[in-house]
Design a protein around this nucleic acid. Structure first.
Lengths: 239, 239
DNA sequence: CGCAATCTTGAATCATTTCAACATAAGTGG
DNA sequence: CCACTTATGTTGAAATGATTCAAGATTGCG
């Protein structure tokens, strides 16, 4: 059930059989949510964390009036809100984009892990630090990349992340977002995203059609995006 | 020496005398750096973390050619790179803006804390989660706020953070950045920051002169910025 | 005092947004 | 399975916020 989380963590560090069991046992329950639903609201007191097993979710913050910024997308194997364990409540909302299956991890079990499993604690801590690394890269995207590079970059990021958890099919992957939601990730309008997608398609770099992204020219796209996967911390780095 | 860190952490949670001693003992050495110096480079293997005691530092990422994005500013009491403990190397550079005094905290002492002090571990983990919360708010700023709101927002944030560690003087605080560096925080050009500063001054909201920010109308500025300090997690929330 | 860094301003340009219309795709119920 | 309805995608034209370029003013430092 938590295989994708394990794939991700094992990319980074060794996990022995005993630790694997502890991780499996931290799940209290599996739950399903419909798509396009806000499942956690800013400020709400939280007693468990949510591990995404299947589907697409995102964290977002709204500005009064209009303007939503999605701050991170979550794919299977990601904790959507492991940070709620230390924060107790979140500074943002979390929503599903598709129907999602999640594993519930009670905070008291996480607390137990911090008391008995220092190595696992450091691994889970690391996992939340990867979220922060993604945030920083998105800050760079939002602050300094132009429209073309922004769209290119998010496709490169998802390509690399989905590959880790085995969700690439050849050179394409499912991306169940519409252009408005994509624009909300990128600090652009949906109209502009549409024009940029046309340009990227015309250049033969990527296609985004029918909720599916095809990486026609991965190297070329990475070039446009100035994408360097180092910030994803995928190198093995035990203990 | 680590008083400002303690002020910050105690705002959130209780720290008993034994824990306070452990925190004091984690510092191996105090070091001084000159201003405008990159002290940690992306990718460099790290064996200690850096607690800022005095001065101003920042994390940044550069884009090839031009374009620097500062992803977070660090004030006294902040760990500049506590996240390097679990990450082992960083995805960004860290630099000083002024001469800085820092406390060095070896990673093996942090490791010891994760093995012997679960509560402190959770507090340190929390501390890195606050950085991530700042990143998310900056993503919102960079993605959705216009120039006026961006400048207003960063001043509101620094105002609130400096207040916690006792670095406000009445309604003003020192901000030893030039307009170019401020622009690098905000995803703007220095020219535009200059024009926005003029506008904010004209509206009687803030002044930024001689490396000092005066919050002439805090409520008005917060309104323009849509600033809500909730993301700074300053509420007491023990254990 | 004089040099270098920083700030300030104007004018032209540019990337992105806004507004608006139409096209296409994707459900939904009869 | 079609007709209808709504969501999503596409495109053009005008407006706008921010950038670029360039020059001059001010400040701070040695």
């Amino acid at each position: 059930m938590i295989e994708k989380l394990l794939m991700k963590l094992r990319r980074r560090d060794d996990i022995d059989a005993q630790e694997e069991k502890v991780l499996r046992d931290m799940v209290s329950e599996v739950r399903d949510f419909p798509g396009k639903t806000t499942i956690i609201r800013e400020g709400e007191p939280l007693k468990h964390s949510t591990l995404l097993l299947d589907g697409l979710m995102g964290r977002y913050k709204d500005l009064r009036g209009a303007g939503r910024q999605i701050t991170e997308l979550h794919i299977p194997g990601d904790f959507a809100d492991l940070h709620s364990f230390t924060l107790k409540h979140l500074d943002h909302d979390i929503m599903t984009y598709t129907p999602c299956r999640v594993a519930i991890v009670p905070h008291d079990r996480l607390k137990r892990i911090t008391e008995e499993q220092p190595h696992l604690t450091r691994l889970l801590w690391f996992s939340t630090m990867m979220d922060a690394a993604l945030h920083r890269e998105w800050e760079l995207t939002l602050g300094r990349r132009d429209g073309l590079a922004r769209v290119a970059h998010i496709f490169c990021e998802l390509d690399a992340r989905l590959d880790i958890v085995g969700l690439m099919s050849g050179d394409s992957f499912a991306l169940p977002l519409n252009q408005t939601e994509l624009a909300e990730c990128l600090g652009l309008t949906s109209v502009h995203v549409n024009r940029v997608l046309r340009e990227l398609r015309a250049r033969g770099l990527v296609e985004f059609r029918g909720k599916r992204v095809t990486m026609s020219d991965r190297a070329g796209l990475r070039e446009v995006a100035e994408f360097d996967p180092a910030y994803l911390y995928m190198q093995n780095c035990p203990r």
